[in-house]
């Protein structure tokens, strides 16, 4: 061998450890999915395959209501955060390196670093204040809160895409009589699109399963799917929850697959 190299994969017990890690990751999910098809109510016994709990969840008005609210919030939050993240990404990459750049990155990605519970309490206090002063209620507060913490998730793939983009293309567009706006619309944006869509989907998924901030910010009757499930758990644990979780899992996996396909190297 020309150069002796250290490879983790060659260490004794590597495959065992890897296997255990994968089991730890997937056994719980697998259990959840399997028991969502259990016809018995108790986790203790297997009563045979059944769609019962899916039918029950589907017929449950409260679940339907929470699901629609979740999708509604996630859609708005994804669009708003992606629009803001795109601007932030353009602002932080389409220029020479500037003083305080790292500071700006940290500022933009704040939701990834500040403990979520702190943001949740802070938002609850601030929004509570606004609600009492203005008397305005509604879903807007949740959308606003979700938009804010989704920004870094939308920002990161967009920035990655921008950084991989050849700046000369924009120079070439301006050389070919394109105004700055036309350059953005005809060259930058179309090339950025996979990053934008990926960012939007990531934001959507992150919004969809948020519990902590939603739990603190929501008013009465504003349950999203995850907070509804949390509420149910306090009462009685039925496989209906398993069925809903499996549904949520399915949506998330579908979205993340699409995210992967879009961010994968093209051309």
């Amino acid at each position: 061998m020309a150069k002796p190299s250290f490879q983790v994969a060659r260490l004794p017990g590597f495959s065992t450890v890897a296997m255990l890690a994968f089991l730890a990751l997937y056994i719980p999910i697998l259990t959840l999915v399997v028991y969502s098809f259990n016809s018995e109510i108790s986790m203790g016994e297997w009563g045979g395959f059944s769609w019962k709990w899916y039918e029950k969840a589907w017929a449950n008005e409260a679940v339907k209501d929470a699901t629609l609210r979740s999708l509604n919030i996630a859609a708005f939050a994804a669009v708003i955060s992606t629009a803001l993240a795109t601007m932030a990404a353009l602002g932080t990459t389409r220029r020479r390196v500037f003083k305080g750049q790292t500071f700006i990155y940290v500022m933009i990605n704040q939701p990834l670093m500040v403990p979520e519970i702190v943001t949740a309490v802070a938002l609850m206090i601030l929004f509570g204040l606004i609600k009492t002063v203005t008397g305005v209620h509604g879903l807007g507060y949740l959308i606003l809160a979700h938009s804010a913490f989704c920004i870094p998730f939308a920002y990161l793939p967009i920035r990655a895409r921008l950084e991989g983009m050849d700046l000369t293309l924009e120079t070439a567009a301006s050389d070919l009589y394109a105004s700055p706006w036309a350059t953005f619309r005809r060259v930058t944006l179309p090339l950025l699109m996979p990053g934008v869509i990926a960012g939007m989907m990531l934001a959507f998924v992150v919004s969809l399963d948020d519990v902590v901030i939603t739990e603190f910010v929501k008013s009465a009757g504003q349950d999203t799917l995850p907070t509804y499930m949390l509420g149910q758990m306090r009462r009685q644990l039925t496989p209906e929850i398993n069925a809903i979780s499996t549904g949520l899992l399915f949506i998330t996996v579908a979205m993340l697959t699409a995210f992967f396909l879009l961010t994968r190297k093209q051309d």
Binding site: A173, L176, Y177, R186
Partner: peptide
């Protein structure tokens, strides 16, 4: 600014627009 000058450039890296066809590249200007 460059978009106001009747001057065009052939770039060292060509800088062709990857999302456009050959004909669309040529008609861009």
């Amino acid at each position: 600014p460059p978009n106001k000058r009747p001057v065009n450039t052939v770039f060292q890296s060509y800088a062709l627009f990857p999302h456009l066809t050959v004909a669309q590249n040529i008609s861009f200007g």
